[in-house]
């Protein structure tokens, strides 16, 4: 395994009485895309600010690309970091090009690459010449992504990057993120739009009230959560008594709208159950297997946290 790009060790951040981040450990490797999920106020943005060195931890230690991000010598670290803040704002009277030029100069990135960058995020040359004040939300977000990509960052922080974007834009957004990850960039994605993170992130970190409550790949989290898998059957008849008998104790049976019957069972029993239904069960028109979604797992981890 290569050297970790981000290493957060037992970090706590207190603002007056409130603890925004409590004892969080987090390690991220190059080429890894980690999704951080949680409610508003779960400590996601606070943690990003700590990792960017905008604030200093009350206790604990943070290493970003091998250095302390809040130290005076952090300039060379920040040159390799991209950040897309939540609710990004640009000066409305500057054009898109002027805005990106300004940030490129600050970062010491060559400005001749800006055109390629605009093309990459899908901002038309005509739009680039217009003032940012005339931009739609989607265009502003593209410009925000362009500035985050300046200078080819090794670490990319994206705080709620897809809020307010239409589905087509989201697709292209995630395509860019995937390409970056494959090129070896560490990407940290913050979101509460959980469903769209499925398939994008290598790892999911669940935050709640400043604490990290779960951390692992989607598959790991699934097995940890032990949430039931649901098998949906469309039956030609209304007779579910026979089905109930065959299914037995292992699964809970509910009747849904449109003649659909849902069986909820443990992940380990899934294959066996499907085989039984298919081989010697009643006639079935259609079968659909629904894995627990990220939303459900997230809700589960929050419930578990609340119960403790």
């Amino acid at each position: 395994m290569t050297e970790a790009t981000i290493r957060v060790e037992n970090v706590t951040k207190r603002y007056g009485e409130t603890e925004a981040v409590r004892g969080v450990d987090l390690t991220m490797a190059p080429g890894e895309c980690v999704a951080m999920v949680g409610h508003n106020g779960a400590g996601k943005s606070s943690l990003i600010k700590l990792m960017l060195g905008l604030t200093t931890p009350t206790s604990g230690r943070i290493r970003l690309l091998g250095g302390d991000p809040s130290s005076a010598a952090a300039s060379h670290i920040r040159r390799q970091v991209g950040f897309l803040p939540e609710n990004v704002a640009f000066h409305p009277n500057m054009t898109g090009r002027e805005t990106l030029d300004f940030y490129a100069r600050l970062k010491g990135a060559p400005r001749r690459d800006n055109d390629a960058l605009f093309e990459r995020v899908g901002l038309e040359p005509a739009a680039v010449k217009r003032r940012v004040g005339t931009y739609s939300k989607g265009m502003r977000q593209r410009l925000a992504l362009a500035q985050a990509l300046l200078g080819g960052p090794k670490v990319l922080f994206l705080d709620e990057p897809t809020t307010g974007l239409d589905p087509a834009l989201r697709q292209s957004f995630y395509a860019i993120v995937a390409a970056l990850r494959d090129a070896g960039t560490t990407v940290l994605l913050c979101s509460h739009a959980l469903t769209e993170l499925e398939g994008q992130a290598d790892r999911v970190v669940v935050m709640n009230r400043g604490r990290k409550v779960a951390d692992g790949s989607l598959a790991t989290l699934r097995s940890l959560a032990r949430l039931p898998v649901r098998i949906r059957l469309t039956l030609p008849t209304d007779d579910i008594a026979d089905l109930a008998r065959r299914v037995g104790e292992g699964a809970a049976l509910t009747r849904l709208a449109g003649g659909v019957v849902e069986l909820a069972c443990a992940n380990d029993d899934k294959v066996d159950l499907v085989r039984r239904i298919a081989c010697d069960g009643p006639a079935v028109d259609d079968i659909e297997i629904v894995q627990p979604s990220l939303d459900e797992m997230y809700a589960h981890f929050l419930r578990r946290e609340a119960a403790e």
Binding site: K49, L54, S75, H76, E86, N87, V88, H91, L106, Q147
Partner: peptide, 14 residues
């Protein structure tokens, strides 16, 4: 207030 400072300070500037 507008959030532009957060972005500016994430750049290599003191």
């Amino acid at each position: 207030d507008r959030g532009t400072m957060t972005l500016l300070l994430s750049y290599p500037v003191a």
